[in-house]
Simulated scan of single mutants.
Amino acid sequence: MSANDLTLVHVTDTHLLAGGALLHGRIDTWARTAEALEAAARFSPDAVVVTGDIADRGAQVHAGAAKLFEHAARELRCPVIVVPGNHDPAGSVGATFNRKRIASGPNPADTVHMNGGLRIIGLDTHGFRESAGRLSRPQLHWLRAVLAIPAPRGTVLALHHPPIDSVLPALAGRGLTRPEELAAVLAGSDVKGILCGHYHLPTFGSLGSIPVWIGPAVSYNHNLLAPDGQVHDLDTSWFSVIKVGAGQLSATPVQGPRPAAVMSREVAVPARQPALL
């Protein structure tokens, strides 16, 4: 990678709650999100990409979240690009988000952004209150038309549901349905990488020859060594730094700030709870 590479900060699965409520009774997700966005300044991002589950269980937080992301955009002097997840009601990521978009698609959160010659396309993978996501045929037709003209420095896709499976059996079948349809649209295109969330677990894979990065969550993350049927490490909050260069893409998870008083705590929560995704 070189000094001319573009830097993206990838934030996902913030699971914000209304009225000062704490996630699982102890996690201040607003504070964790603000801390992640503040820490992003250290990396001088060219854009921040937020890949869904802004809210937890459909909480009415999107007006406040839009203000938070707009404030971050001013402080960081870069666009904040947002797509919804399965905890975000249909239409909740609308006109108050993605103000720097240069084009829109079939859904309000299908957006196109251009930054330093890099094109970032956000896709709404639907699935509110469902585990799996999907892309409609109109979305795929629109995406194919957008990609027909290459961008000067290539394209990165942002979507919530990963087009690859998780190593955790509890997450089986909870990614993007029919990923082969997306792969067919992307074949031969200038897409350099796909950024996703949803799994609360950093994972790298590929869709065809295109790298897929599933970022760790800002809210909390899974522990692969936890006993069956449980989730640990509610005190871990992460974001990612993505470097995009000529023919290259790298992803680095970054652990967010944590209060010293809770660094050694470990809490178990049943993995079957819908809130975990």
Score class of each variant (00 low, 15 high):
120 I>H: 03
236 T>F: 02
57 R>Q: 15
170 A>W: 00
199 Y>N: 13
109 A>I: 03
111 T>K: 00
71 H>A: 14
51 T>W: 10
78 C>Y: 01
28 D>T: 08
15 H>T: 10
3 A>N: 12
273 Q>I: 08
23 L>M: 12
77 R>G: 09
180 E>N: 14
226 A>K: 07
260 A>Y: 02
51 T>G: 13
175 G>W: 02
9 V>I: 15
218 V>M: 10
86 N>M: 07
172 A>T: 14
103 A>Q: 09
156 V>I: 15
91 G>P: 02
55 A>M: 06
137 R>M: 10
62 H>I: 10
270 P>W: 02
72 A>D: 06
27 I>P: 06
138 P>D: 06
272 R>D: 13
111 T>Q: 01
116 G>C: 09
118 L>R: 02
213 W>V: 08
146 V>K: 03
218 V>A: 12
123 L>S: 02
164 I>W: 08
171 L>V: 00
217 A>T: 09
81 I>Y: 00
39 A>K: 12
195 L>H: 11
165 D>H: 09
35 E>P: 00
213 W>F: 15
215 G>N: 12
189 S>L: 07
18 A>K: 14
33 T>N: 10
134 R>E: 15
195 L>P: 09
64 G>P: 02
207 L>F: 05
41 A>V: 07
212 V>S: 05
127 G>F: 03
261 A>E: 12
128 F>D: 06
188 G>T: 13
228 D>C: 05
101 R>W: 02
169 P>Y: 07
194 I>F: 12
88 D>T: 11
277 L>Q: 13
212 V>F: 04
95 A>N: 09
202 P>R: 12
230 Q>M: 14
175 G>N: 07
22 L>M: 13
244 V>F: 07
53 D>R: 11
1 M>Q: 12
65 A>S: 10
83 V>F: 01
133 G>E: 11
223 N>C: 15
85 G>Q: 09
277 L>Y: 08
248 Q>H: 12
96 T>E: 15
95 A>E: 15
210 I>Q: 05
170 A>K: 04
183 A>Y: 00
59 A>F: 06
203 T>D: 00
137 R>K: 12
209 S>G: 11
127 G>W: 02
255 Q>G: 08
259 P>I: 04
259 P>N: 14
84 P>F: 06
175 G>I: 08
59 A>C: 07
105 G>R: 00
220 Y>I: 02
7 T>Q: 12
185 V>G: 11
205 G>N: 06
73 A>F: 04
169 P>R: 11
78 C>W: 01
214 I>D: 01
99 R>M: 11
222 H>G: 01
244 V>I: 15
67 K>A: 15
36 A>T: 11
86 N>G: 07
188 G>P: 09
195 L>E: 13
215 G>I: 09
9 V>W: 05
236 T>W: 05
46 D>Q: 13
218 V>Q: 09
248 Q>Y: 00
246 A>G: 05
131 S>G: 14
221 N>W: 03
235 D>Y: 08
55 A>Q: 06
227 P>G: 08
39 A>W: 05
257 P>R: 14
252 T>V: 14
66 A>F: 05
210 I>A: 08
22 L>K: 13
77 R>Q: 14
75 E>K: 14
251 A>L: 06
159 L>F: 04
12 T>E: 06
140 L>K: 02
82 V>F: 00
87 H>W: 06
98 N>D: 11
